[in-house]
Amino acid sequence: MRERSAVRAHALVAAAALLLSATSCGAEDGRRLTVFAAASLTDVFTELAGKFEEQNPGTEVVLNFAGSSELAAQINTGAPADVFAAADTATMAQVVAGEGLDTDWAAEHGENGVVFAANTLRIAVPPDNPAEVGELADLADEDTLVALCAEEVPCGAATAAATRAAGLDIVPDTYEEDVRAVLTKVELGEVDAGLVYATDVVAAGERAIGIEFAQAAEAVNDYPVAVVSTADEPALAAAWVDLVRSGSGAEVLAAAGFEVP
């Protein structure tokens, strides 16, 4: 919750700053690439932005992180994005149907963007694993305190797909509003287990342990990226997508817990 609203506020400020800078200074002494990316990409893309600016001297990468659907809505109402990286294909489809993708880029790479990473679910437990959780079925135990994402949010949809695949009816003790809130409850030890993404387990460091489970394969979240039709810098934007899909991009993504195709 906290992370989410902080990110959101940050995104608003960033968007406002973008609008201001777009009208006032232009690209006199350098070029500017604006990347809208899902909040879960914050660490990865921040690191890649450094690499990108090294490779393209005089270029500044401006990053705007928020929930995917929020970013899609911003782009579709005219926010000045060059690149959009979403946490799921459905949100990318909203932009494809709305503002649209850069036609040249899309013709070459794909009409719905390209998938550059995938995130899978893990069971997150506190470091001491008090309920001795080992597999998904343990979450169905009455005495195990469980936090899941609400079905209305993307991680909740993935959770539902996974539990359905396992043939389990897991009744949690709380439906959290986003995956970070689930992780927080696990980190604080207030619940015995929660379902989060592999990247969240990596981000939690020593404060939580991730347990893989077979049915996670049924609920893989694909991350698509694309150059948006409103791009001022289509060439730079294409270069960014290439970096993300390159070997060094894959390395950074994998380190953060993403699966790379």
Binding site: M1, R2, A147, A150, P172, D173, T174, Y175, E176, E177, A181, K185
Partner: peptide, 16 residues
């Protein structure tokens, strides 16, 4: 909202 969702969680019938 905020304190409730953080402290009490969010489950239909008991804390939602």
């Amino acid at each position: 909202f905020g304190a409730t969702v953080t402290f009490a969680g969010n489950f239909p019938g008991t804390t939602r």
